[in-house]
Computed example of a mutant assay.
Amino acid sequence: MPLASVVSDLTRKKAEAEILLSEIQKKEKGVGNALLCTVLKSSIVLVLYNTVESTMYSVLEILHEKCQAKHFNELSDCQKEIFALMHFGKNGSKRYKENIELTISGELKFPSFESYSDGEKIFSGNLDARRINKILAVYGVRYSVDKAYGRSFLEVKTLRNKLAHGECSFSMACRNKLVTDIESMSGHIFTGLNNIVMHLNGHIRAMA
């Protein structure tokens, strides 16, 4: 999946979120729509968090594909650590000799993101700006989500988890939030994600 498709996907999801926001604004002008509007606001929170996870999955998948095309000696130190963890750590400890020989011959490749994430819990309902920064650092990517957007990433993650774990109902999660609050949150999430994708695009190009 090229990064251009990730950008395209982000653009589409942003448009979908804006449609939802527009509908809420229309409904709020009517009488007796308070409950519906609150539920819709909570639904947007889920859309935003799912967008964060799906975007990060896609960009890391592309990064892994790029690394898979390289011999072990061509990988960065951080990438070599991931390689070693996958093939010589807990997942490959019973095949040391074979894996060493396959690494030397170049037959053993950098793991796909799918196989790597099966063994290592990269993320699952815990993605906020701080976690994203830590994940990128594991790959040797120097990047920090803009602090101006960090609060929105944290709030979306927190609200999503309350909804997912049944701690809060859809009618309660965003009852004290204005449409403008949700709009601001949405804008921060999509701008923040787009910035991450653009930075990773430069990082991946530099790997060539």
Rank of each mutant, 00 (worst) to 15 (best):
K70W: 01
H71A: 12
N73F: 04
N73W: 03
N73V: 08
E74M: 04
E74T: 02
L75A: 04
L75G: 05
S76K: 07
K80E: 13
K80G: 13
E81T: 09
E81C: 12
I82D: 08
I82V: 11
I82H: 05
A84Q: 15
L85K: 14
M86C: 10
K90N: 10
K90D: 07
K90C: 04
N91H: 09
G92W: 11
S93Y: 14
S93M: 11
K94I: 14
R95P: 06
R95W: 10
Y96G: 02
E98D: 07
E98W: 02
N99Y: 05
I100M: 13
E101C: 12
T103A: 15
T103D: 12
S105N: 12
S105E: 11
S105G: 10
K109L: 09
K109S: 07
F110L: 05
F110D: 06
F113V: 03
E114W: 14
Y116T: 03
D118R: 15
G119M: 10
K121Q: 15
K121A: 15
F123N: 15
F123M: 14
N126C: 09
N126E: 12
D128V: 02
I132F: 11
N133R: 09
N133L: 02
K134G: 13
K134Q: 14
K134A: 15
I135L: 12
L136G: 06
A137W: 01
A137K: 11
V141L: 09
V141Y: 09
Y143M: 01
V145C: 03
D146E: 04
A148S: 10
Y149W: 02
Y149L: 00
Y149N: 07
Y149Q: 01
G150A: 11
R151G: 00
L154I: 03
V156T: 05
R160E: 08
N161Y: 00
K162W: 01
L163W: 00
A164I: 00
G166C: 00
E167L: 00
C168R: 03
F170W: 03
M172Q: 11
A173Y: 06
C174P: 06
N176T: 00
K177M: 05
E183C: 03
M185W: 04
S186T: 07
S186A: 08
G187A: 06
H188K: 08
H188I: 05
H188F: 08
I189D: 05
F190S: 07
T191W: 06
G192K: 01
G192D: 04
L193V: 04
I196R: 00
I196D: 01
V197P: 01
M198P: 02
H199A: 04
L200W: 01
